[in-house]
Computed example of a mutant assay.
Amino acid sequence: MRSNALARTLVSVTAVAALAAGGLATAGTSFAASAPAVSGQTVSILATNNLGLSTLQAKYVQCFLRGAPASYTGSIDGQLGTNSWKAMQRHLREYWDYNDNIDGDPGPNTIKALQRMLAFGWNYTDKIDGDPGPNTRAAFKRFANDFAGLYPCS
């Protein structure tokens, strides 16, 4: 009798454990099924970096970049994306000692050259360190606003 009770207890414990495991397994799949789907657009890399400029200010910069040697041929949409930054890098290479790849990524070397340019005529007085901090962003806004007369450009 004692062995019969022990067997029932073991079967009961095994059944409870199996139910719990099954419940956890289905909880995972039911949670996954109810989770919102993520589209490829949601996961894509941010394609623009206006460094704090408004859309209108970014349009001013794009109009400026239409001039040689920057040769920006993209749309004037106020979004400083890869093509805008490639044009900026070409401009910085020509005049402000940018010596890295023309890749459209406003990384530290691009920002250093931008800071050298902004120090020349847009009251940037901070370090040339490649960090687009608040002083860099403020000077970049002054730069953009200086080209307001170019917009709309063709």
Rank of each mutant, 00 (worst) to 15 (best):
R2E: 13
N4F: 15
N4D: 10
A5Y: 10
A5H: 08
A5L: 14
A5S: 11
R8I: 12
T9L: 13
L10F: 14
L10N: 09
L10Q: 03
V11F: 07
V11A: 10
V13Y: 10
V13I: 15
V13Q: 06
T14N: 06
A15G: 05
V16G: 02
A17K: 00
L19Q: 00
A21S: 07
A21F: 12
A21R: 02
G22N: 08
G22V: 03
L24I: 05
T26D: 00
T26W: 04
A27S: 08
G28V: 10
T29C: 00
T29K: 01
S30H: 00
S30F: 05
F31C: 01
F31A: 06
A32K: 06
A33I: 00
A35M: 07
A35C: 03
A37G: 03
A37Y: 02
A37F: 04
V38T: 11
V38N: 00
S39I: 00
G40K: 03
T42N: 03
V43S: 08
S44V: 07
L46W: 09
A47V: 12
A47W: 08
A47F: 07
T48Y: 03
T48R: 01
N50H: 09
L51W: 07
S54R: 14
A58S: 15
K59W: 08
Y60N: 13
Y60G: 08
V61S: 06
Q62G: 12
L65A: 03
L65I: 09
R66Y: 08
A68I: 12
A70G: 09
A70K: 11
S71R: 11
Y72S: 09
Y72F: 15
Y72V: 07
T73Q: 15
Q79W: 02
Q79F: 09
Q79L: 07
L80W: 07
L80P: 02
L80I: 12
G81K: 08
G81I: 06
G81Q: 07
T82S: 13
N83V: 09
S84N: 04
S84K: 02
K86C: 07
A87G: 05
A87R: 02
M88C: 06
L92F: 12
D97T: 07
D97E: 05
D97S: 11
D97M: 04
N99T: 01
D100H: 03
D100A: 11
N101H: 02
N101D: 10
I102V: 10
D103S: 02
D103P: 02
D105W: 09
G107M: 05
G107H: 03
P108V: 10
N109H: 13
N109C: 00
T110P: 12
I111G: 08
I111R: 04
K112L: 14
A113L: 14
A113T: 13
R116H: 14
M117P: 08
L118S: 10
L118W: 13
L118C: 09
F120S: 13
Y124G: 07
Y124L: 12
Y124W: 12
Y124F: 15
K127Y: 14
K127W: 14
K127H: 08
I128E: 05
I128F: 07
I128R: 10
I128Y: 07
D129Q: 01
D129W: 06
